[in-house]
Design a protein around this nucleic acid. Structure first.
Lengths: 183, 183
DNA sequence: CACTTTGTTCAAAAAAACTTGAACAAATTA
DNA sequence: TAATTTGTTCAAGTTTTTTTGAACAAAGTG
């Protein structure tokens, strides 16, 4: 769950080799992706772009991370969909190049939009279905129990819906510089 | 990702058979567990307990859900650890019985405590390690870039830390009854 | 003590998730 | 048009995660 081959020691400004600190950052994002339920390769790709000032092509991503074409293609697409990377086209160059979005509010916003919102939406339908199953019940006590449960679930659903805008808002605050890197 | 065998039609107050609506609720939690990165069986177990008024023993959980001893044992332990179920002992009965915690703030709090907090803690160490790798860099431009990235990561870390208390707080508000089940 | 009940552990099996790479398509160039 | 570059798709392979069930421990019972 860690791992990578070694990198260059004397850190010249090489952009086609991974620096040691970059490997560590990439590994950080690998783990983060994992715990957000995203494939590790997405984390690696984002981590790499996060480290770089210059945009990278899909090919460069593949080679630097030693991942397959398929992973790179799918990963970059998904990350763009999430709003975590965006693509740029250098004039007179046919290929797409990618850069990382580093504004936390954008990252969080995209993640919530793509992951949380759909779940909440599906939830509405599921709750309706459960409701109708419960309404069909003959036994009064069981129906009462069912109704109570449906109320609880509806309440949760409502609360989660109320929460999301706050999260986006709170994370948005002071997305700017951290004060000082106090070691 | 759905599935279950059928249940009783004429819903008498049977507590050793799954009602159709209960199957639907269990399936809801199965999916929810999944998208929170927890094993499906945890979701099933929680969902079952959520539906019931009476506490259930591990054996009853196993039989009702048709899952193995191992899954039931591990699942119940993990859920208790998360604060999502608690155990009760009926007097004069040796075996442990379980009930679901239904207060959303408790559920969210437990989840954040067990899943988010540890990640943030590990993050501190990782950031330190990255910092030191960056400090070792010879190349001035690369070091500058590294420092900038470290600052960004530190800022994110700080923001996530600030966010969690708010989440617990906002979810806590009005954990009581939903107003009306408006179909 | 022998026997039953309750619950844990963990190696092996099964299932799910992720990655790979070859085949394909589209656009560009010679 | 043939050859090249860039990127997508997806079946098959690999890795990781989850589940199972047999062996074991602990505690009560007769």
């Amino acid at each position: 769950m860690t791992a990578f081959s070694v990198a260059n020691i004397s850190s010249s400004n090489q952009i086609d080799i991974l620096d040691e600190w970059e490997i560590a950052v990439i590994d950080l994002f690998l783990n983060a992706a994992n715990s957000f339920g995203l494939p590790k390769s997405y984390g690696q790709i984002y981590g790499l772009l996060f480290c770089r000032d210059q945009s990278l092509s899909m090919n460069e991503v593949m080679k630097l991370l030693e991942i397959s074409k398929g992973s790179a293609s799918q990963g970059l697409r998904a990350l763009r969909q999430l709003g975590a990377v965006s693509s740029v086209f250098e004039p007179g160059d046919r290929k797409e190049r990618f850069v990382a979005e580093i504004r936390l509010r954008k990252l969080v916003g995209g993640f919530l939009r793509e992951q949380a919102d759909p779940h909440l939406d599906k939830g509405v339908g599921r709750l309706k279905q459960i409701k109708s199953l419960i309404n069909d019940l003959e036994d009064v006590d069981v129906r009462k129990r069912g109704i109570r449960r449906h109320e609880i679930l509806s309440g949760w659903h409502r609360q989660m819906s109320r929460l999301l805008p706050w999260v986006k808002m709170i994370v948005g605050k002071s997305d700017r510089l951290p004060q000082k890197s106090s070691d």
